[in-house]
Design a protein around this nucleic acid. Structure first.
Lengths: 220, 220, 220, 220
DNA sequence: CATGAATGAGTCTTCATTCAT
DNA sequence: GATGAATGAAGACTCATTCAT
């Protein structure tokens, strides 16, 4: 792995573990055993590193949530697979949502990129819900689709942060991530077509089981 | 107002406006026209101020969400009045949720207090939902009550933060707060008893109207 | 002497001795035996110190060159006394002209103040020359007054810098300053009224004698 | 042009435009599209580059100011042509006089070269003035020749620097250079033989006209 | 109660220079 | 000749905190 990539990886790891504000460029360099000058050879400043991380975040997110249309979209399982992946992205970049406003309001350029990604996500998510409506999987009143997508996004975005605050140990387990998926299913549950109830129950049970499985805690 | 209280008030205001990390003890003192030494006469350190603010936060929250039982609880309007108040508390102490993990994991003592308050809140909120179930206002399956309270807490807690990130201007308007209340109502909507639908619709419309009302933006 | 003044004095001394670019805020603090933080308690930044020094420079200059009109102005000796003083100011603030452009173009606000002082000086100097013209001491053609003042200013301003470059030892002696005064007299010599020649010669000889007197070198 | 020469040319340009202290070796390399390592293949260090620039400066100066004796020296026009050229050299290497002391006192070897060039110049200039004295063009008292050459050198050397400081825009126009020549003529004017007055006036007018001609500003 | 000068470790960043390839 | 990654000492500046008065 090239030094530039190692810097990004180390920064991401340390940001997630200790919070972006508590990780200095010197920490990152020391963690990698390189000189601070070398870090600044590859990046103009700390913000530049965050931009690069955000780029990775956005790519991961797009990959995890490319709306699949057509026959495949018939199965809710497909969609929830995506949810699964998205939660993982949220976990991988949890430092970002832990200080969302600090990071964004300090850097308008990044903020614009963030808003663009959010808009794209919202559009895709709404399209997905409409598709599921059309396929008679869900039955969401039209005027509720938009607020519901917002709520879903909020729960997904802040789940890790919120759960991390719920115990003195900042580390959360993988089980907690699955619990987050189950929570999203629960939010959608009232909108499922009656005859799809069994299907949903199965999915839901799957995630609740995973949530009950003891697992090594991720480091915060 | 005593100096000690003025310090707390100024700190809260500045934390909310500029983020806790960006407000130094010297800023607070300068804002009040007092010396840094004086500030440290009243508080051992910055964290001590945050403790005091948290205490206020907890008190406000308790006042806003004392579970009312008995005849008054019949009317959902009463409860939603509380919701209204809670959102205002979230607004008043928005800096806290904007950096929840940083603030808590830096100070285990504060973290314990936070967890205690959260537990209390969760208990009260669940009691409230059960009461509304009993009064045939809501019909929430028993095993969904706990996850639903968590989701409600999340939406309430992070609403301000999340909305502030949705535009380049960190300030949000009062309308956005009302929108948050409407969002909570929407989360509960699927669980309302059919014959209470009209009542809910009225409440909901009330908040949506307020959310549509243009208003001066609060300064974030 | 207050710390704030000691900082200004130390900065001026070190700037003069080593060049402004080679003197860091840490050097200044260490030289005074104070912490860097203390220095920044008194001044927002290095430029702020330079501003304060410039203020002193401007005050010294005004004091040294208040145009005396009326009977006293009759004697050229009075005026050359001023020149004497001005050269001393140039010596006291020699770091400034040693890096004139760097310092000014880095700080437009300071540049404006500099230009204002320069204009004032030019006006006063021209008034002085006209007065001496009127008193039949000098006989400068009108259209040459302005360029002559400029040349005088240049010689006065850069004399120290130029002389410091003329030997490997950056320190210059007081004698060199007197030589500068003599040089200015020489510039004016062609414009003296014939019958004032003796007077001039006497003055000139005075300074040349001083210039010949061995003296401890100032530390550059 | 060889890389080595391109480095010198780029360094000179950037030094002049931005000041020697503000131009890093990396800037120079980047400006040329070469690697810093390559720059250090050709030059041991930054000072080495300055040495090479100084060498060019000295050559230009010698070329511009080779004292022409014999019949050609009869015409003052010839000499002022040289002055013209010298001012251009001062312009071409203006960064050097803008930080004269910093550059020289940091590098004794360079300083020695500088002093040698200066001595040579002084000798030549004095020879020139004596020649013009002999040809009855000028009539400078013997003991004033040496101080006058010094003053001339000062005005020539610092003219660009001084003028650049006289406005907020560091760039100066070609007109300002011609003004400098006119200023030198003015310094000599009192020493011109009466019957050469017309000749001088013509020359002087020539330069003043050029100085009045609007021209694109050079980039400082 | 209050002042305000002082501390010092720490932050981000720069840059001349080196060196393996 | 040339690359470009790497070094590390140094610079300007910050800030929670202390303490003599």
């Amino acid at each position: 792995m090239k030094t530039k990539d190692r810097i990004v990886a180390a920064a991401l790891q340390l940001f997630n573990e200790q919070g972006e504000a508590n990780v200095t460029t010197n920490h990152i360099a020391a963690h990698l055993g390189i000189s601070p000058g070398n870090l600044y050879y590859h990046f103009r400043n700390k913000n530049d590193i965050i931009h690069r991380i955000f780029q990775q975040y956005a790519e991961h997110l797009r990959k995890s949530f490319t709306p699949v249309t057509g026959p495949a979209s018939a199965s809710p399982a497909v969609w929830f697979h995506y949810l699964d992946a998205i939660f993982y992205v949220m976990w991988e970049f949890r430092f970002f949502y832990a200080n969302l406003n600090d990071i964004l309001h300090r850097d308008p350029e990044l903020h614009k990129k963030y808003l663009a990604v959010q808009r794209e996500l919202a559009v895709n998510l709404q399209a997905l819900l409409r598709e599921l409506n059309a396929q008679q999987v869900l039955a969401i009143p039209d005027q509720e689709i938009e607020p519901l997508t917002q709520t879903l996004k909020m729960v997904v975005s802040f789940w890790v942060s919120y759960q991390s605050a719920q115990s003195l140990d900042p580390r959360i387990s993988q089980a907690v991530l699955y619990e987050g998926v189950a929570r999203v299913l629960l939010l959608l549950k009232p909108y499922f077509h009656p005859e799809k109830g069994a299907e949903l129950a199965k999915l839901s049970e799957h995630y609740q089981a995973l949530a009950r499985t003891p697992s090594d805690p991720f480091h915060k």
